[in-house]
Design a protein around this nucleic acid. Structure first.
Lengths: 114, 114
DNA sequence: CTACAACTTCGAGCGCACTCTAAGTCAAGC
DNA sequence: GCTTGACTTAGAGTGCGCTCGAAGTTGTAG
């Protein structure tokens, strides 16, 4: 898979994918004989997971912490699990806050009449 | 109410409140005899409402559109209601997306075992 | 009278997450 | 053989939403 294919399948741009590699969010890509990046399905899964973290508002610096633990391999599972659990709880709180805001918005909208 | 009081009651800083006024998110404040900004309860309500829009991810440029309609007064209620309704729907979609991501996170966390 | 905190304006600076440009390389199709 | 287009690098630029600093004024407490 070339960078343009990965871009299409993830919704990122090739620019953004190179940026992610540069800052360490993605491991250095394999290269084909002409020096172009060549990706496999495992990379796709990783980028999609990063997408979930991004959707839920995790800052890149935290994704980097997670990526570094992942790169460190065995022995870091506990820390990774704890990180994700903390993040999960924060997201759940945000869902509650958003739901409350929806009520406020609905009330305001209703207040405008027809 | 002085700017420091409004700051304390809204959780914003005085710097941010002046910034909001500068860009047009808040109407030019009344001044006391020494030139200091003096706020009433209505301003507090407005800032709290801006807080709801911010919490739900509305960009400042959209808040500005809303603020301008509000400043224009009567006759813009329909547009304001439509804006809020569109925003409400977008927020509802985000809540759904976040909830789906929570499931993904839970699955991932469970995958790490104990 | 003096010290001090809180206010004022203007404008620069910052952190985040991209986003784009320039200049160059390479493989495939006509 | 030449054009086309996707790739490569390094580094600069962008938009958002603050955030801070400098320099000056004002009201209150001791």
């Amino acid at each position: 898979m070339k960078i343009s294919d990965l871009a299409e399948r993830t919704g990122l741009t090739a620019h953004t994918i190179r940026y992610y590699e540069r800052i360490g969010l993605m491991p250095a890509a394999q290269r084909d004989r002409s020096g172009h990046r060549a990706y496999d399905e495992r990379t796709l899964v990783w980028v999609e997971f990063l997408g979930h973290l991004k959707t839920t508002g995790m800052p890149i610096r935290d994704m980097l912490d997670y990526a570094r633990l992942r790169a460190a391999g065995a022995g870091t599972e506990g820390q990774r699990k704890a990180m994700l659990a903390r993040h999960r709880d924060a997201v759940a709180l945000r869902v509650v806050a958003l739901t409350e805001c929806l009520d406020v918005l609905d009330a305001k909208i209703a207040g405008y009449g027809d």
